[in-house]
Write a protein that binds this DNA or RNA. Structure first.
Lengths: 339, 339
DNA sequence: AGTTAGCACTCGACAGACTTGAGTGCTAAC
DNA sequence: GTTAGCACTCAAGTCTGTCGAGTGCTAACT
């Protein structure tokens, strides 16, 4: 039994309806819709076929039908036409993002908020791995008697900083010359190579050995923290607005996942391509089998990428989510790469 | 009718029980407790008195009784004895906080996590207002052709930074001399005075007028952002574990409040003293009338303070919450002031 | 006078019986 | 191929009765 045009049409109608109402849809509902010229009975026959083909599920006899994961798959692959955001909306997002400065952390944080607001679903953003960036410049800025701020500028203009302890009695000039030395030694090395060359670097640090050790140790620690790449979540309570989470137990499960950065990273960061990819229901593994996850990536410079995504019920408004993600992916890439 | 010792004792027992079980407590439950030598009937008489005095509420006839806000007030003011954290625990928190560096943002963020973890309630931390800090040092670090990182070090060693656009063609040396100039002009002024002296400062900036304008503008904007002082929330989903929020509607309300930084700032930041203060139920206004809010403050240097707090059900474990807040307040103050 | 036992009463929670209504599947007629 | 008709199913809502925890009151006890 093939999927003829009418079946397509009916399936589409069912999905559309279910996406907006979240209530199992019956034959009469579809029959009443404009553009459908058939009686409930006919629709029923078709629905029965669609169920046999695996596109519909019935929660129980005499409830309406609900689209299956397979139906959503078909929907996003073939039935859905992705719209554009209105130029008005694009502008609003753009302005907001622009106003938040261009440092990676800030961009990610505001992007998470924007994504959640624009889609009304929960958003997740995974920070890029910076290990392969090359050090361009290191500078120590005096902060107090015993502290200095170490600023690491990389080849893409991304900045990491950390406060380190310095021996008291060092003048600003001293710090400056130490900065020069550090820069000289480390310039052009990838961040992740710093630890490997640790010993070598220390060998010829005569005078300020203590400080060098501290500086390198801090860089190393930053990297470790970086390895557990940062994950930011936006709008975590959005989904309580959807009836599928009216049950507190379900909501709790979901929120638990949101609090595990590891799981999120796995969920959002798994695809490598730049295009928007969609994982529906069970494709996300048993834990999130009643959610869909839509992800995209953003670029920082030419190689490094991070991921952004939306988590929502399987019946989410894919169309809108995809438009927003595509737009945000581009906006973030621009913001983080154009320097 | 006065509150005699026995009434005190019984009230205490009721509160203790209710705090742990969240179930209305009946006369038999109290009677069975060790240390209470009276029959249920006697207890009932006393409970009836306590109800008349306004310390107990009855959800309906033939349910047990529930402590009123007034009872909790009495409890925290007179009945409760505040314990200490175990030294083990104190050490754990201390270590964790220490390992997170000493920059204000980082401290606040990790403190929010620690607070929520240690108490199992939702935590809120309001960042200090930095406007009255004095500028000690300004330094521009080149980041790319057209960008520089402006670092503002204040008298307390707190650092703010921002990326600003610089005219291309400026060497590192140029930036250095501009930094010097800015520092000279601005040193020892409170951050909030910068905007006021804006025009004056510009007057004698001959050569790099463009850059100066940009720098000052950015400082101004930072301050505006600072005015809408940062608020960080930790463990926002913790309270779903408590039966009083089993109803999704209630949970949604609560989470909505958590997402409004304004309301939170009002809720947490209202008290000025350093001691722990407690607002019970209706004292928090109608919106949070079934929650209690416990707040404390932390110091940054000698004058500037920020606030930290815990939001939970009125039947929260005040004892523990207070110990943790006291400890954290001290820990944060130390971390942020000892430089 | 304070304490306790006894007893009638209240009310929420729970379970089972019944009703309602949306929806289905099947069959026969158009 | 389409539709009307009808019997059937099942969740959800309502109604009813039972159970148990808890109360308030009164009378008896110490």
């Amino acid at each position: 039994m093939p999927l003829d045009d009418r079946k397509f049409m009916i399936l589409q109608a069912i999905i559309d309806d279910y996406i907006t109402t979240a209530v199992p849809v019956g034959s009469r509902t579809i029959s009443r819709k404009a553009g459908v010229g058939f009686s409930p009975a006919t629709i029923r026959n078709e629905m029965s076929d669609l169920e046999e083909l695996g596109y519909l599920d019935q929660p129980h006899t005499s409830a309406g039908r609900v689209p299956s994961d397979k139906a959503y798959r078909l929907y996003v692959d073939r039935l859905m036409k992705v719209g554009k955001l209105t130029s008005d909306e694009r502008e609003r997002i753009h302005d907001y993002m622009q106003s938040r400065g261009a440092q990676v952390d800030a961009v990610i944080r505001s992007a998470a908020t924007v994504l959640a607001d624009a889609t009304q679903y929960t958003s997740v953003i995974v920070a890029p791995k910076l290990g392969s960036l090359r050090i361009r410049h290191i500078q120590l800025v005096p902060v107090s008697e015993e502290m200095a701020l170490m600023i690491i500028v990389t080849n893409l203009g991304i900045v990491k900083d950390a406060v380190i302890r310095v021996p008291s009695g060092l003048s600003a000039d001293d710090l400056y010359s130490i900065s020069r030395m550090l820069t000289e030694r480390l310039a052009n090395k990838p961040l992740e190579a710093v630890r490997a060359t640790f010993a070598e670097l220390l060998q010829d640090a005569e005078s300020n050995r203590r400080l060098m050790v501290e500086a390198l140790r801090v860089i190393g620690r930053k990297l470790d923290a970086e390895d557990a790449t940062e994950v930011v979540v936006g709008g975590s309570s959005k989904l309580l607005n959807y009836p599928e989470y009216a049950d507190v137990e379900k909501a709790k499960n979901f929120l638990a996942v949101l609090e595990s950065k590891d799981k999120l990273r796995q969920l959002i960061g798994r695809e490598e391509g730049m295009e928007v990819t969609i994982h529906i229901g069970a494709e996300n593994g048993p834990e999130m089998s009643d959610c869909s996850v839509v992800t995209a990536r953003y670029r920082v410079g030419d190689q490094v990428t991070g991921a952004l995504g939306i988590i929502g019920p399987t019946r989410m408004n894919y169309n809108r989510v995809i438009s927003v993600l595509e737009f945000m992916s581009r906006a973030m890439s621009e913001l983080l790469s154009n320097r």
